[in-house]
């Protein structure tokens, strides 16, 4: 294999690393702005999801892998989504008995 071919194998990984570092800076900068509830969290979540997607697609080679592998990835993601959604279906609809305010 020639040096040029090695170079072309390296390059995409380097680009992904740079993108991840840039997004890390972006998330810190974004955290200093006050978007209000729940927007600040959604912005942070969106950036974190983007970073995770980059790692999964490129570092973990899911981009270009078989449908079965992609299916396995989504299984985990759907599992955690079910856990979040149905647990929150309780907490988001409870008659408010928890008070997060200064107590007497």
């Amino acid at each position: 294999m020639s040096e040029h071919e090695h170079h072309s194998l390296w390059k995409p990984y380097g680009q992904v690393l740079v993108a991840l570092l840039v997004l890390t800076v972006v998330t810190v900068v974004a955290a200093n702005f006050h978007f209000g509830t729940p927007w600040s969290d959604l912005v942070a979540l969106f950036i974190a999801l983007s970073k995770a997607a980059l790692v999964v697609a490129f570092f973990m080679h899911v981009k270009g892998s078989t449908r079965l592998i992609k299916f396995a990835v989504w299984t985990g993601v759907i599992g955690i989504a079910i856990f979040f959604a149905l647990t929150l279906s309780d907490y988001a609809t409870r008659v408010i008995t928890y008070v997060d305010a200064p107590r007497m």
Partner: peptide, 28 residues
């Protein structure tokens, strides 16, 4: 990958715990 799906579910417990208490006690 199935093992990692399992790992996701393991950490999902901690993240759900965080999510619930974050919703209940945002200020704290």
């Amino acid at each position: 990958w199935i093992f990692l799906a399992q790992e996701i579910m393991f950490f999902s417990g901690l993240f759900t715990c965080y999510l619930v208490y974050r919703v209940l006690y945002p200020h704290a």
